[in-house]
């Protein structure tokens, strides 16, 4: 760990705070998440719907508005010029950092392109905002870039509805990465695409990350996509980080019961019987369970799980997990190696 992390969140708490008819409702969507992402790595954030993935992404991107409120903790970027706060940026700072350094590939991409604007015009809007240049020059730049993506020049003159879903997603990825950003957030980039297109999108993201040396933060519930792309994976459950390790470890030796179920739900070619699904549903985040938030669904739940929240402990090789089953084990490890977070 020679380089400082490009993105670091410390004990981040972000709640949706609403007040209607005098009743205050707090949804703890992200509740004490700490993570640090190294330059050049592909960092996956996984978890089922409603676990706080999207909220965490909004906070990491510094793009939030009420009722979503940062309650505690920090998010900082570091592009080699010292850390800068990501949560308190004003409009000018946001404009200076977005797209040229921090970019975002949205989910779905069916409706992220303005239906009444030609693709070329949209590209010009996005590029000239951050790097003022005449229209002709952006056209040249986009043409060259789209060619790398296997998209014809004619795409520039098209309207979004004339493109197929896969082309639209490639155009969107191109739109997000044309200024070679250092840090790219991809929010469910393969959802709503068929598997063939998914594959090409995965390869495309991988290539961009390699060619530009960017850092990619990949948010998806699809563990298959995570396995294909990510170097390291963080698993979120009910607004908390429950496990984080390199991809191989997450898939081969997951420690948290939730991660074990997540991995166990993946079908394999040798399957002869139906996969086991995890009973129950993710908890409502306005009133999460006490203690370990996973205990109502956990097959190994003990008494301590109902009252005491398990700490996120570091095992060997930066493998972190939060479960009472392994807390003791980590205590022993802590004697030989100092814990990280």
């Amino acid at each position: 760990m020679a380089q400082p992390p490009i993105l670091e969140a410390r004990d981040l708490k972000a709640y949706y705070i609403t007040e209607a008819f005098g009743v205050r409702r707090t949804v703890k969507a992200v509740d004490g998440v700490s993570l640090s992402i190294q330059p050049g790595e592909i960092y996956g954030i996984a978890g089922e719907s409603g676990c706080g993935k999207s909220t965490l992404l909004k906070m990491l991107l510094g793009e939030f508005e009420p009722p979503l409120t940062p309650v505690e903790g920090t998010v900082a970027y570091d592009f080699g010029e010292g850390p800068s706060d990501a949560l308190g940026m004003d409009e000018a700072e946001v404009a200076s950092i977005r797209w040229s350094r921090v970019s975002y590939v949205p989910q779905g991409s069916m409706h992220v392109l303005n239906p009444v604007r030609r693709i070329g015009d949209t590209f010009h809007d996005f590029i000239s905002t951050h790097r003022p240049m005449p229209r002709r020059q952006t056209n040249e730049m986009v043409k060259a870039y789209l060619a790398e993506f296997g998209l014809r020049e004619g795409v520039l003159q098209s309207f979004p509805h004339q493109l197929s879903g896969g082309m639209r997603q490639r155009v969107t990825i191109a739109l997000a990465t044309i200024l070679s950003p250092k840090l790219i957030f991809a929010d469910e980039p393969t959802t709503a695409l068929d598997v063939v297109v998914q594959r090409s999108v995965i390869q495309l993201l991988k290539r961009i990350q390699r060619d530009h040396g960017s850092t990619l933060v990949l948010i998806t519930h699809d563990m298959g996509v995570q396995a294909n792309l990510a170097d390291r994976i963080a698993v979120l459950y009910a607004g908390k980080l429950v496990e984080e390790a390199d991809t191989r470890t997450i898939f081969k030796a997951p420690r948290h019961p939730y991660t074990q179920h997540l991995i166990g739900s993946l079908p394999t070619l040798e399957d002869k019987v139906a996969r086991q699904s995890l009973p129950g549903r993710p908890p409502a985040l306005d009133d999460p369970p006490t203690g370990c938030r996973f205990h109502p669904r956990c097959p190994y739940a003990m008494d301590i799980c109902k009252s005491v929240e398990p700490p996120l402990v570091t095992l060997e090789d930066g493998h972190r997990a939060a479960c009472h089953l392994i807390t003791d084990e980590a205590d022993h490890a802590a004697h030989s190696r100092p814990a990280l977070a």
Binding site: R98, Y104, H111, L113, N114, D125, T129
Partner: peptide, 29 residues
């Protein structure tokens, strides 16, 4: 709250351009 306006906002496009080219242009239909 449409996806393309949100995307343009995340990309920090100037507000004036978003209002006229992205919002009003679409409400015109």
């Amino acid at each position: 709250s449409s996806d393309y306006v949100r995307f343009a906002e995340i990309a920090a496009l100037p507000k004036r351009r978003i209002v006229f080219r992205y919002v009003i242009r679409n409400t015109m239909l």
